[in-house]
Amino acid sequence: MMVKLYLWGKLNLLPKIKILYLFLCLIIFSNANSESYVKAGESLIWDSENKNYTANGDVEFSNDKFIAFADKMIAFYIEENDEEIFTIVELFENVVIEFKDEIFKGNYAIYTREDNIIKLTGEVSIKSPTRLLTGNELIADIDNNKRILNSANKESLVEVLLENNAND
């Protein structure tokens, strides 16, 4: 009788522990995903009057969408529900943005959180595992998974097939 009760209790308890474990995992996972960071090698200026942060020297910016590297960054924020949220991120000089398996490069980039669009200008390139494209302007629509590459003239728009694709 005691063994039966023990087993009955154990069987009832196990699913609850499993659910609790899954629930805790979900909380930890969601928190980890919502964290982003800014790293600067030289300085970071917080301008509370103009509501922005300016980072200088080997800047690294990361959010839940991408990781960006540049020489300088200005990130504008708004206050929402007693919290500050980055709305526009501008990147200057030697801009490299890593988004999933793609790498975008340019001289200047601007990211707007509202529409999740990254716009790069200057000597722009987009590199994926299979191809490399270069131009003067790149608009990367993250939500709709669209890439628009513009060029000033025909010569500046180049498409290069990378080795992975060439072997196929």
Partner: peptide, 28 residues
């Protein structure tokens, strides 16, 4: 939360300059 090697707080201008290597971990 932000960590830096030093700072200069220009309270009158509403600016804080963080010097050296800076790491700013944000919630969003």
């Amino acid at each position: 939360t932000l960590n830096a090697k030093g700072f200069k707080n220009l309270d009158y201008d509403g600016k804080i300059i963080f010097m050296g290597k800076v790491e700013f971990v944000t919630k969003n």
